[in-house]
Design a protein around this nucleic acid. Structure first.
Lengths: 292, 292
DNA sequence: CACACCCTGCGCAAAATTGCACAAAACCTG
DNA sequence: CAGGTTTTGTGCAATTTTGCGCAGGGTGTG
């Protein structure tokens, strides 16, 4: 059965009993209805209607089609109702992805947002590989670094991540405090294993010290923080992270050039949906508290 | 939801994951598929797919549509299976109509035919009013008299009804036998109450006797036979009927001009269906036995 | 019995749909 | 990393579909 429109036409004819009545309901010319009926009967090789001067009377086959198409019509009506509503209400899944280092910030927000919308299921995806918005893997992504410029992605600046330079008390006891920029070469650092890291504070560090001062190198951000905590060396950490870890000593005033940008990225197809929009506005609201 | 064809297109895209794949399945150009998707999304105001270089990924709304349309597709497939088979197999209803005087002949045939086809429901309609084939009230009609010439009705001659002139033994005892055509005016007859009856034997009777000899007039054929049996007068009766009623005396040799034609009438829309055809051939086969 | 009304059916022209060719972008493979 | 493949997207022309007007026929009603 190809050409579902002809089924719909036949359905209305069976329901109305006349070609003219069906044509009026369908909003087409009655000649079109006749042609549809002739076409579907010819394709099926079955008479669906008995033609007479008063209209079209469905045969048993036509009554069978009537029942099936009636159910289909109901199904479609319900579907349209769901689809139209779905764009407006916040329900179903909300898939958010970010680097795992952001989870401390995001998880409380996601939890609160879910509690505001009982019908919502939160899927928070973090991992090494980038979850791609284009394939529908996520609705909202939190990205760091330079502004992403992927097509079909609508990207907006989220917030500047304030970065500080910290060390553990044990490190200060052992190596003494940092006495300004010129003293950097006399200390040892915890840094990223990635030589080409484009994070601004990493570039700053490469410019102001020599390679051999970075004596503890990690590929994972969380491990870096652990290393700093353990006194392995001086390391960069977001101000917000540092405030949650007691015993850290600020080694230097924060430089503006260390700041990293965070970006909120959504797929253009989903950006205008109420679900995404309400989450974004809620997230920005909560993010104001982090800035101070 | 108008335009069911677009639903079908969207269904195939959701199923295949690509526009090209859906286009191949649907047998249309991929540009058509793209336009259908754009159209249905615009009409619903909901994004059904996320577009990317690898194809179209259904959103939650698209997945909802996929489920509904999948069910619809199954329903339609089953419907087509039923419809295509329905034309071939003998099942459902078989509606036959005739004058009630034919019931003695038809009922045994109908009974046997039903037993040959367990899935069949026989509806045998008899009554004063004519059941009209055009409105789907009956599949097959058995008509007497001149050949019906209604449009859309396919008419075929069934058999000639041999008619004899009979009386009860009690009538012969009282009035004596009929001594030829010239003796008709000396007898009394059982006839129809309808002055304009076009039955050939009635016209013959009006031509060969006077009105006042028809002393028992009925509107119903069965009542006429009862009257003849009771000795009210001489009356016409089909040879087949007379042979089933003992004690009747044939008053005259059967005249060819008395014979009435019976016609099998079907609606043109149903005439070619296997159900009607197999019943007609079965009926004709059984009718051969009546001719002898 | 005649009139009015409604429904079907058909030819022709207008309109919408579709197919085609081509472009551009992304992905896979060797 | 480059070539080949697959995919979507768009302007233009051909085709199909649709709408319109009118004729024909049947039905019901006054």
């Amino acid at each position: 059965m190809e050409n579902w429109d002809e089924v719909r036409t036949a359905y209305q004819v069976a329901r109305m009993g006349t070609v003219s009545g069906a044509a009026e309901v369908l909003g087409v010319h009655h000649a079109t209805v006749i042609r549809h009926i002739d076409a579907i009967e010819a394709r099926l090789g079955v008479k669906l209607f008995q033609r007479h001067a008063r209209g079209y009377t469905p045969t048993e086959s036509g009554q069978d089609l009537l029942r099936v198409a009636q159910a289909t019509d109901d199904q479609f009506s319900q579907l349209v109702g769901r689809l139209k509503g779905q764009g407006d209400e916040v329900s179903g899944e909300l898939v958010v992805t970010s680097l795992s280092s952001m989870s401390h910030l995001l998880v409380p927000v996601l939890t609160e947002f879910q509690q505001m919308h009982p019908g919502l299921v939160i899927r928070y995806l973090t991992g090494e590989r980038l979850f791609r918005l284009e394939y529908g893997e996520a609705h909202v992504a939190l990205r760091a670094g330079n502004a992403p410029d992927q097509p079909d992605n609508v990207v907006q600046p989220f917030l500047k991540q304030k970065i500080g330079l910290f060390a553990a008390q044990s490190y200060v006891d052992q190596h003494g405090p940092l006495k300004g920029v010129d003293d950097l070469k006399n200390h040892q650092f915890v840094g990223t294993d990635n030589q080409e890291s484009r994070a601004p504070f990493n570039k700053w560090l490469r410019e102001h010290t020599t390679e051999d001062t970075i004596i503890f190198r990690c590929s994972d951000g969380v491990a870096m923080q652990e290393a700093v905590m353990a006194g392995a060396g001086i390391g960069f950490m977001s101000m917000w992270e540092a405030s949650r870890r007691p015993g850290l000593i600020k080694m230097m005033d924060s430089q503006v050039e260390w700041e990293g940008s965070l970006w909120l990225v959504t797929h253009v197809d989903l950006h205008r949906t109420n679900k995404v929009q309400s989450f974004l506005s809620f997230l920005k609201e909560r993010a104001k508290a982090w800035q101070e």
